[in-house]
């Protein structure tokens, strides 16, 4: 999986390593065995999905920066860790690096008038070069035997704090707590208002441009933080590790809402629902791989799932309108 020559290689279908095919285990046994790994990945990507939730649901902007900022988080963390930086400090700096990438997208949109989707694509493309330059090559491993890490997929069965399930789980809950507090403050309310109604926000004295930038920054900070976790978990950072991240994030948001939307009304619970959506996504992915799906088709599958789930509310509305229209005509 590593190419020290610096050439860009496709990263392998990552870290579904707990499947030991030919182990004489039945499929259910394999799945059960893989569960801690799937849940760990789901939790890590859950932080990322909460970032996507902030832009997609709260700000009402589909921000594609995340494909780049996710890798930025992983790259920054790995470089810092290899240089002996304190692990939590490395996480914090990864978060800040992510916020900077978000600031670029935000300014491209608000200062230069570029539509948000295009602004995100531009930043994402630029970040590919930046990540490559930062890392100096396409990917870089951090060996858990030689370097201290916060989490690693090797510890996924340990009964200790370093178990990714515990570390990431606690961090995720703390983040949800902080976000819940923040979105209840005056600043947080202004951010929500900006996403809900631009005209009303400006009429109430809210600087909507500032709030858009702030929201996109916060989102990408979380995304990069998640990338920093994943790089440690899988033991390497790769400039392509964020490819398709937006789709996974959206899938988690949509699955979370579809499954828990009816019972989770509180804001904090809704964020947790998104994280659970991410876990469900990874369990489903693990299942279809165990059942023998070619791992190369994974992204096609993810895209199809997201497309269908995005279409459902639209179809529902069209059906209702047709239906009601018919009833009225009598």
């Amino acid at each position: 999986m590593t190419s020290d020559s610096g050439e860009v290689v496709l990263s392998p279908p990552r870290t579904f390593v707990y499947i030991r095919k030919g182990d004489n285990m039945d499929i259910l046994g394999q799945l059960f065995n893989a569960l801690p790994g799937s849940v760990s990945q789901g939790l890590i990507w859950g932080i990322m999905a909460i970032g996507v939730y902030i832009t997609y649901r709260i700000l009402d902007v589909a921000d594609l920066t995340v494909d780049g900022s996710f890798a930025t988080g992983g790259v920054v963390a790995v470089i810092l860790i290899l240089n002996g930086c304190n692990l939590w400090l490395a996480m914090l700096i990864a978060f800040i690096a992510g916020m900077l990438t978000g600031a670029i997208t935000g300014l491209l949109h608000t200062l230069m008038g570029i539509p948000p989707i295009l602004a995100g694509i531009l930043t994402q493309l630029a970040l590919y070069s930046i990540n490559l330059k930062l890392l100096g090559k396409a990917n870089q491993s951090v060996n858990v035997n030689q370097t201290d890490l916060l989490i690693s997929l090797r510890w996924v069965r340990d009964l200790a704090f370093r178990n990714p399930l515990i570390t990431v789980g606690i961090v995720l809950l703390v983040m949800v707590g902080i976000l819940y507090w923040f979105f209840g403050t005056e600043m947080g309310c202004a951010l929500r208002a900006t996403g809900a109604n631009l005209n009303m926000s400006r009429a109430q004295g809210i600087n909507t441009s500032f709030n858009k930038v702030l929201g996109i920054m916060l989102s990408n900070g979380l995304v990069a933080f998640s990338g920093a976790f994943l790089a440690q978990y899988q033991g390497f950072a790769d400039v392509k590790m964020g490819q398709g991240a937006i789709v996974i994030g959206l899938a988690a948001v949509i699955i979370g809402e579809a499954v828990f939307g009816k019972i989770f009304k509180n804001f904090a619970l809704r964020l947790i629902g998104v994280a659970l959506g991410s876990i469900i996504y990874y369990i489903v992915v693990q299942t279809v791989i165990t059942l023998g799906l070619d791992a190369n088709l994974l992204k096609l599958l993810s895209a199809a799932i997201v497309a269908i789930f995005l279409a459902i509310p639209y179809w529902k509305k069209q059906y209702m309108e047709k239906h009601i229209g018919r009833a009225r005509r009598g």
């Binding site: 209840g184 403050t185 005056e186 600043m187 202004a190 004295g205």
Partner: peptide, 9 residues
């Protein structure tokens, strides 16, 4: 017209 801070909304 007021500064929006980290006080409760």
């Amino acid at each position: 017209g007021k500064r929006r801070t980290l006080r409760p909304g």
